[in-house]
Each structure stands twice: as structure tokens, then as C-alpha cells.
């Protein structure tokens, strides 16, 4: 399986050139709405049980040293996902363009 370079991430002070498409594109503290999970059924069900339901808000949180895996805040909890998994969770843009800061 080809190793894909996931660790690059947009510079924190630069505006996104286009809206984040997957969880992987979220910068720390940024929030978006989950649209769909592009993973086999058993994995996506497990993720849904942890709160990754389509339509729910997901925010990027801490990262492991090295940038992978990353921690996401969803439905009142924090869940760590590897970058390769995070890239399969697709986002829809927030209704308001500037409601990015999550506390």
C-alpha cells in the first residue's frame, strides 16, 4: 500500500483557498459539519457510535507529536483518528462562513 503524505496542513494564519473537504483539512480549533463517511460499514458504524454522525459538528483538536494521529472533538468527546482515516470523513461547509472558532 502506497504511503501517502498526510502531515502537511495549511499554514494556520493563511485563509483556506477552498473550504475544507475532509476532517484532514481542518486546522486546530476549526469546526465543520460532517457530511458522510467513506469507509466500510463496520468502521463507519463504530465511528457513528462515537458521535461521527452525518450532520454533526466536528472540530479539530490536538495532534500526536508528529501530526498523526489527530484528535477530533465530536458530540462532547474527543476521538483520535489516523490521518488516513480522517481523510475519509467528508465535510460540508458551515452555514456561516466565519463561524470557525470552536471553544
Amino acid at each position: 500500500m502506497a504511503e501517502i503524505e498526510f502531515h502537511r496542513s495549511p499554514a494556520p494564519d493563511m485563509p483556506h483557498t477552498r473550504p475544507p473537504a475532509t476532517l484532514l483539512d481542518l486546522r486546530k480549533g476549526e469546526e465543520a459539519i460532517l457530511d458522510r463517511i467513506d469507509l466500510p460499514d463496520d468502521v463507519s458504524l463504530r465511528l457513528m457510535e462515537l458521535g461521527f454522525l452525518p450532520g454533526s459538528r466536528v472540530a479539530a483538536s490536538f495532534r500526536a507529536p508528529g501530526g498523526d494521529p489527530r484528535v477530533f472533538r465530536v458530540d462532547g468527546t474527543e476521538v483520535a483518528l489516523r490521518c488516513e482515516t480522517a481523510a475519509r470523513l467528508h465535510l460540508r461547509p458551515l452555514p456561516k462562513p466565519d463561524a470557525a472558532s470552536a471553544t
Partner: peptide, 10 residues
């Protein structure tokens, strides 16, 4: 084997 997803609640 294929790599399996790592999902862990913090």
C-alpha cells in the same frame, strides 16, 4: 495485512 483504522476515545 491491510492497515486497519485506529479509533480511540480520549
Amino acid at each position: 495485512s491491510e492497515r486497519t483504522p485506529f479509533v480511540l476515545e480520549m
